[in-house]
Amino acid sequence: MQKLMLDYFEKKLNCEKKRIEELLKLMIKNETIGSKSEISSELSLYDNHPSDIATELNDIERGMAFSENEKSMLKKIDRALENVKNNTYGICKVCGKEIPEERLDFLPYAEYCVECQNNFSNLKQRNIYDRPVEEEVLGYPFGKGKDSNKYDTGFDSEDSYRAVESYNEIHNVDENYEPEADYVEPIEKISNEQYKNQLPD
């Protein structure tokens, strides 16, 4: 790349870096990031409604996401500025071809050419139903669930649960609930009529 274009992109990268640093300072000043003042202003969160605490936590998480996004951009810009100094700016990190100036003008910290970036973008996303490849080799030693071995009398997932549960017993303590047992506190046995009779006339 020509020296004139390198200087142009270096200037553009420095302007973008300055803009992001100003934005981060503004976010700190406006308490968008790094502020726990609302949470720390109370002695206890115990009396607050759970939705209030969730809202405050959501604000903190959103601020952290904003902050991390901007810091990630700064890292990319710093790498691009380092590449300008090393005379490797504008070269794709994968294929080694030159990145078109139009792409760099739009995205000055681009590390990949359009083709390589498209290859990254087209990688198959993992699905929530994808299973680890090891399962193909290992199989399912305890079955996939209660109905997986309907006609098999082997050791299935329910048997494994019962085996583990047997270690959770406390001896000399009755853990089973008995409906006929009386679980009412003595103070709660007082009827309204008894209470009224105790009041002075």
Rank of each mutant, 00 (worst) to 15 (best):
L57Q: 14
I33V: 14
D201F: 14
D105T: 12
E38L: 13
E185D: 07
K124I: 15
N14D: 13
K93I: 10
L57M: 14
D201Y: 13
L23Y: 06
A181V: 03
E158M: 14
D156R: 10
E102R: 11
F66Y: 13
F142M: 03
S67T: 09
K71W: 02
D52S: 08
Y140Q: 03
Q2F: 09
L74A: 00
L199V: 04
Y129S: 12
Y109F: 12
Q125R: 14
T55Y: 08
K3Q: 08
Y8Q: 04
C92T: 05
A80M: 06
L104T: 06
N48I: 15
Y129T: 11
M1Q: 01
Y151V: 09
V164T: 07
S160A: 12
L24K: 01
K144C: 00
A110M: 01
E136W: 08
I77Q: 05
E38Q: 10
E101I: 14
N86S: 12
P141T: 02
E135D: 05
P141I: 01
G145D: 08
L43F: 08
D78I: 12
L107T: 10
E193T: 08
P141N: 00
V133F: 02
K93Y: 05
Y183K: 05
Y46M: 12
E165N: 14
V164C: 05
Q198Y: 09
A163M: 11
E38I: 14
L43D: 00
L43T: 02
E22A: 05
E31N: 10
E165F: 15
E136S: 10
V94S: 07
E22G: 06
M73P: 09
A54S: 04
G145Q: 07
S191N: 04
K189E: 00
I170T: 14
T32R: 03
E56M: 14
V164Y: 07
I128S: 09
R126H: 12
K3D: 04
I39H: 03
E175S: 12
I77P: 03
